[in-house]
């Protein structure tokens, strides 16, 4: 019984520590998927993202730090994948389509 309790305390402490670290301190660098953006533009589909056209004339790859809960949220609509070079990249053209986005896939 005593060993069981010690084991319980150790595992529980690790779980709490892991949850707190993951929720508040762990971050991932996620990159834009401008390749997809360009493809969509080339076939004549215009994506209107507020502020995008007015601030940038040339599209460059941008990156942004995502907390783990933000990545979890993005994953609920399959928003992040690995690019060929191993970087985390958005499955959507712009990072602004991931952060804080509500999960409705439409």
């Amino acid at each position: 019984m005593r060993i069981r309790k010690i084991f319980w305390v150790i595992i529980f402490s690790l779980s709490v520590a892991g949850t707190i670290y993951g929720a508040f301190f762990r971050e991932f660098l996620v990159y834009d998927n401008l390749e997809k953006f360009e493809k969509l533009k080339n076939v004549g589909i215009t994506i209107k993202i507020p502020g995008y056209e007015s601030t940038e004339n040339k599209f460059e790859v941008q990156s942004q730090w995502f907390t783990e809960p933000e990545v979890v949220n993005a994953m609920t609509f399959e928003g992040i994948s690995r690019y060929k070079d191993g970087k985390l990249t958005s499955n959507y053209p712009d990072l602004r389509m991931l952060k804080g986005r509500l999960p409705c896939p439409t």
Binding site: G18, G22, T76
Partner: peptide, 29 residues
């Protein structure tokens, strides 16, 4: 979010979701 869905998605990109595993462990314990 569904914990199994998130675990699968994270496994697909080679990451371990600490919050998901931690919350499941806390609930289980």
């Amino acid at each position: 979010a569904c914990p199994m869905g998130i675990l699968g998605q994270f496994a697909g990109i080679g990451l371990i979701p600490l919050t998901v595993i931690g919350l499941m462990a806390i609930a289980g314990l």
